[in-house]
Design a protein around this nucleic acid. Structure first.
Lengths: 254, 254
DNA sequence: CTTTTTATAGTCGTAGTGACTATTAAAAGG
DNA sequence: CCTTTTAATAGTCACTACGACTATAAAAAG
């Protein structure tokens, strides 16, 4: 570009970088999904095994191309439905993380990928896998080196979700429609990797209007081993004011 | 796609959506920049006037194409340097906001735009404008309807910056290398649109280790009308724990 | 020399929270 | 059946952080 004037004259100036003539290399645009869920008190990620080079045999985040008539969000939700096999993904929390566009991130060509994080309450086993290549849940932390820059995307997803837990009500997205405060606390503890004091957590959650609301009648009895816990639903609030800060990491400079 | 299996087999399967054959419409990838600064105690945005259809004569956020060998971040920094005329933009805060990919956002073709927010300490007048088309600072809030979906991008940038002010030290990015606490407070007040109690703000900032550090010797004398204020530099900290929450908006349901 | 202006210091009450202890209500084990 | 175990719930206490304020200091403006 010829500096500011050239740009101002020709913003989206296809004469200069003419799209029709393919005067510059066009981009493939994909979405990559970090689909997170909790199974048996541990954070799990949905991964697919690649069947082609590059990274054949390596695990990768699910994803795919953005089709001509789709937005990235639409493509992400379509992929989410395909990969999880869920009938209805309209209520699931899907959050755009950021876009990864390093020139060398796909060795074959220029691929710009819009990354999303998706949060699932329950974890149905992915329905695919009639052939050799599989899709399955893997515990976060046990994931080896993933294909492309998916390790980084996954780490960014975890960071973002953990940070949003502090000042939003996002944690309920990991919970089924009705849940106990103990379950909600486990969500926090699993994602943050820290323990939380139960009475204090309870006090905080209940003191935040709209975070959770008690289900009209019941308390859960059969399953639990201790005193039955009251059931709650996610409330209407989305923000957490004041926030629920995670305990600060140890080891600060004196 | 044929569901999960088809995808797992063919992630980035260029046989299915073959890039080489242009079997699907490729995308143009651009960056759009919300360049923010403070002039005379008001938030300003860098805008350029469009010279071509669509939206000819309308103001728009600066931006441009991502070149074949660039990442979106590199392209954004290059555009930032071009638009502002600054020699060195390496130290400026540049933050990726999100990617806008609605199919109809550019009437001519499929354009996916990665949006960034940039924060400038001082506001040099943009150096362009030898021709009819201009680039200039406009007060945030006075911006009329912008081209494309740039109103939304700008609003998203403002939201993001305001939110990050609560739990990061980002506000110093609007300040010159040495600044007073009064100036820093004005940055907060301008971006948030609220007044803050001066002694309390001072107490909070100074109590957060690494937010600001006093400049070795001096206090500012000549300019100010009252007691000279001590000068500070931005510290090494990036996060704010506990956060500096903005005063809650009035009007909550009883 | 007084007034104005702004920076800085300090006070007081309270909301929020970390660290606890105590009680309750179920299942599990003998 | 009674005891132990487990987990939910209730409550206490001290301390921190913060909102609202008053007081003092040091400069320019009049």
């Amino acid at each position: 570009m010829r500096g500011h004037d050239g740009h101002a004259h020709d913003e989206y100036g296809y004469n200069e970088y003419g799209y029709d003539k393919y005067a510059y290399e066009p981009f493939a645009v994909t979405v990559d999904l970090a689909v997170l869920t909790l199974r048996a008190g541990a954070l799990h990620v949905l991964l697919v095994e690649r069947g082609q080079e590059p990274y054949a045999g390596r695990w990768a985040l699910p994803g795919g191309f953005v089709l001509p008539d789709e937005s990235a969000e639409t493509a992400a939700r379509r992929e989410l439905a395909e990969e999880t096999g869920l009938k209805d993904v309209s209520g699931l929390h899907l959050e755009q993380l950021r876009t990864y566009s390093e020139p060398g991130r796909d060795p074959r060509m220029r691929v710009v990928s819009v990354a999303f994080a998706a949060l699932l309450p329950d974890a149905p086993e992915p329905t695919g896998g009639g052939d050799a290549l599989q899709a399955r849940w893997q515990p976060y932390g046990d994931v080896g080196p993933l294909a492309f820059d998916h390790d980084r995307i996954l780490a960014d997803a975890h960071d973002r979700v953990g940070a949003k837990f502090e000042y939003t009500c996002l944690a309920t997205a990991f919970c089924p429609p009705e849940f106990t405060l103990g379950e909600l606390q486990q969500v926090y503890e699993t994602v943050w990797g820290t323990g939380l004091d139960r009475p204090n957590f309870r006090r905080k959650v209940l003191a935040t209007p709209g975070f959770v609301e008690p289900v009209p009648g019941g308390a859960r009895l059969t399953g639990g081993r201790g005193k039955p816990a009251a059931l709650y639903r996610a409330g209407a609030a989305t923000a957490l004011h004041p926030p629920l800060l995670r305990p600060p990491r140890e080891g600060r400079s004196a």
